[in-house]
Design a protein around this nucleic acid. Sequence first.
DNA 1: ATGGCTGCAAACACTTTGCATCGGC
DNA 2: GCCGATGCAAAGTGTTTGCAGCCAT
Lengths: 160, 160
Amino acid sequence: MRLDARGSGGDVNVERLVELLRAAGKRITPERVQILKIISAHPHADAQEIYQLACKACPRLSLSTVYRTANLLRELGVAEASGLGEGHRHFETRSASHYHCVCTACGRVIEMPPIDEVRRAAERRGFRVVDEAVELSGLCSSCGERAGRRTKPSGARGGA
Amino acid sequence: MRLDARGSGGDVNVERLVELLRAAGKRITPERVQILKIISAHPHADAQEIYQLACKACPRLSLSTVYRTANLLRELGVAEASGLGEGHRHFETRSASHYHCVCTACGRVIEMPPIDEVRRAAERRGFRVVDEAVELSGLCSSCGERAGRRTKPSGARGGA
DNA sequence: ATGGCTGCAAACACTTTGCATCGGC
DNA sequence: GCCGATGCAAAGTGTTTGCAGCCAT
């Protein structure tokens, strides 16, 4: 799993989110800042992942706070939940593209650029689009090659 | 919520599913047939809905059977689960388009035709597409008009 | 100092599973 | 008749909530 822009301390995106919290009259706590950092760096994390990562910097953090913060962000419209086909929800920041391919073998998420035609097809039906999510499942290029003509990878659980 | 093609008794689609079960060496029980009917007529139902509807014809039916059958269909590749943004999963038959708009006000699901460009964008990135799901959230035409210039509907819970 | 935020644990909702019985093949 | 399928209830997950204390404002 690719990790990047983590622990830099000066994330522009995090600043933006903090500002949003402040504007909404919410308090800026270390727990929240930490969770915002994680969510910024991992646009497709689930509650457990956020919790585990945030714990490293905030040992007293509790799972409830992760859920509460995630829901708060959802209320503020900066993140949203989506079941990526598994039994639990993943959170993603609204700034990130919602067009992605999820590899059923390694769990990797590949982002795609938005495709106007999708939105237009909806609007043509009188639908007022607020948010769009496109999710293709299949094999990423690595897993696709690996499975080229051999055993079909069936385990989709990405380990810790 | 629109209901159609329900209780006709001679669904072609149901026949097809039954045949699939038989081909897989599974037994054709009244419970399964009933659940298949429901799923055929309601491509976006969740476990509870399937259960309640199926109960009318199969009073002894249990929720476990609904889940077991749904998972069986998933294994056979004819249906799949997807969290439509709520706290639980919805099942949808694979024959149905996976391109839809979900109204956040009334819960209605509007189907759209597949858009080739989406699949191509993924394949251009070396992704081997197995399944595609497009989900736009927003307001359907009715709710959009109703909310035209008034109170923004926020309750997304669709009643029974 | 105040009231929102947190951690903890219990409560909840949804899904899965063990076991005895039933019924499709 | 055999073995898979079912119903029931209990166990498992993932998520939410009540409460007392803490800390950002």
